[in-house]
Amino acid sequence: MSLTMEEQAKQVSVGSVNKVPMVKYTNVMKSFGDLEVLHGIDLEMQAGEKIALIGPSGSGKTTIGRMLMTLEEPTSGTIEVEGEHLWHVEKKGRLVRASEAHLHQMRTKIGMVFQHFNLFPHMKVLGNVTEAPRKVLGLSKEEANDRAIEMLRKVGLADKLDVYPAKLSGGQKQRVAIARALVMRPKVMVFDEVTSALDPELVGEVLAVIKEIAEEGEMAMMLITHEMDFAREVADRVIFGAEGHIVEQGPPEQIFENPQSERLQSFLKRIR
């Protein structure tokens, strides 16, 4: 029996789904004190996949990203990165809380860019970007500088090496923060509303940089965003969350043109 090209393509794509996912959340719950903010999240990201996480504020998007960056520990459930547990290790067939050493090793695959940049104010731009390559990867000063300058060139700031963050615009700060995260060459990166703290006229330059990175392809990206046009353009898949649940997900055309759930329909209406 011969397969049409389309059917072949389908098989290939099914095959790639069967590969170990880049990231896999399984029944992840999170509470802050008595407040349960995530009620059992199941979510997968494939290698290189770009997902956009959208939804009303307070729905738990940031918490989903922060748990992947190891900044917030799930109350229950598991997160795996390339098939390996992030927050746990197996001991005698049981999952136990992982040590800082394990988290350290897992973090080499993960990066994050924050809403408020969080640049180190006491280091110049170059220092911000070389700090982790030098201290964490143990690169020499020259190697770290080369790598950092390459990244800063990519975000269009190779002329600001010697400047303290305080002297930069918000858009420039965020681009430095992106370079600082990229220089560690993570396999998956969380972008948590990276344009929300910016003046409107500076949003474009940051989104352009992210788009360019997305086009390079190999890094998986979790884009938490309120910029629907951007989500539509960059994401392979859009995930809509509300009140601690994933309500609906699918390709951007489907989510934006043909939303199924009432919640998503009213959410889209409200933000347009």
């Binding site: 960056m69 973090r107 964490v136 995260a181």
Partner: peptide
């Protein structure tokens, strides 16, 4: 600010490096 700790952790600095760097 707490964000400084978090950024340092996200870059995978060790707890000691987070504090002293």
């Amino acid at each position: 600010p707490k964000g400084q700790w978090e950024a340092a952790q996200a870059l995978n600095l060790t707890p000691t490096q987070r504090m002293f760097r």
